[in-house]
Simulated scan of single mutants.
Amino acid sequence: MPREISLSEVQSLVGQEVGLSNWITVDQTMIDAFAGATDDHQFIHVDPVRAAETPFGGTIAHGFLTLSLLSAMNYDCLPKIREQQMGINYGFEKVRFLSPVKCGKRVRGHFVLTEARFRGAGMMMTNYDVSIEIEGERKPALTAIWMTIIQFDPKDRPEGV
């Protein structure tokens, strides 16, 4: 996938995997920082001794931490759209947390563009089927449909759309 594309090329990518991110290690420092930011200090995330007694055998990442990594994964692997002025999160559908991410594991994101449609003079709505793979695991950590808006100057809108 090219590192940069034009707005007129986006719709031709529908149905394709448009990004595969680099691996990110989810360590205890990251988990603890997320716990502090969200005030979610459940022992399964922040207490390695107590978490070792659970079926997980140690701490696991918050599901919302795993979901939030999609932003970094997006910046890492999706092609930049030359005309884009700003990207906006519109939301998620069908978020499913399928497997816990154990502390120390590496994860990476897969992005399949499923829809790209112009909306108004200076916006394009995009939908991605996203999944976060856990290295060495059969099931992904999560799957979701991620909806975003690409904002651009209306003068850059391709003709005929």
Results as ranks from 00 to 15, higher is better:
Q84V: 15
P140T: 12
F56C: 13
P154E: 09
G19T: 11
D156E: 14
N127M: 08
V107D: 14
L13R: 09
C77W: 01
S131V: 08
Y90A: 15
D156G: 01
P2E: 15
H41M: 13
M124L: 07
G120L: 04
A121V: 08
E9N: 08
L70C: 09
S12I: 01
C103L: 03
Q11V: 14
I81P: 10
T29Q: 14
T29N: 11
G136N: 11
T29R: 05
D129C: 05
G109K: 09
V107M: 06
G120C: 02
S21L: 08
F97H: 02
V95E: 06
K94L: 03
G122D: 09
P48N: 05
I81Q: 11
H62Y: 02
L13Q: 13
I5T: 06
I44H: 04
D76P: 06
E53F: 00
E4Y: 00
Y128T: 10
D76G: 09
N22Y: 00
S12H: 03
W146G: 04
F92A: 04
F64C: 05
V107W: 01
T148G: 03
G36Q: 12
V107G: 12
S71P: 10
T29Y: 02
D76N: 07
K139E: 15
F97M: 13
W146Y: 08
C77I: 04
V101L: 03
R96N: 12
G122T: 10
S8C: 07
A116V: 04
G122K: 01
T143Y: 00
L69P: 07
I5A: 07
I24P: 03
R96A: 14
S6Q: 13
M125L: 14
K105T: 14
F64H: 11
D27T: 03
S99D: 12
A116E: 03
L142M: 14
E53R: 01
G104I: 11
L70P: 05
N127H: 12
R96H: 04
D156S: 05
N74F: 10
I81W: 02
P48G: 07
M30R: 08
S21Y: 01
P79Y: 03
F118R: 08
I132G: 09
Q11Y: 01
I132S: 07
L65N: 05
I5K: 00
V101E: 02
Y75R: 15
Q11P: 09
S12Y: 00
V18E: 09
P48Q: 07
Q151N: 08
A72L: 10
G91C: 02
P100W: 02
L7N: 10
Q11K: 10
R119L: 12
L113N: 07
T29I: 11
I31W: 04
I145L: 05
D156W: 00
K105A: 15
I88F: 09
F56G: 13
P55C: 06
E83D: 09
G122F: 00
M30V: 13
M147G: 05
N127L: 12
W23Y: 06
V107Q: 06
P140F: 03
G109M: 12
D39L: 11
G15A: 11
L70I: 15
M124T: 12
A52W: 03
E93Y: 00
T148I: 01
P154M: 03
D129G: 06
E17L: 02
N89G: 09
Q16R: 14
Y128D: 08
S131C: 06
G160M: 06
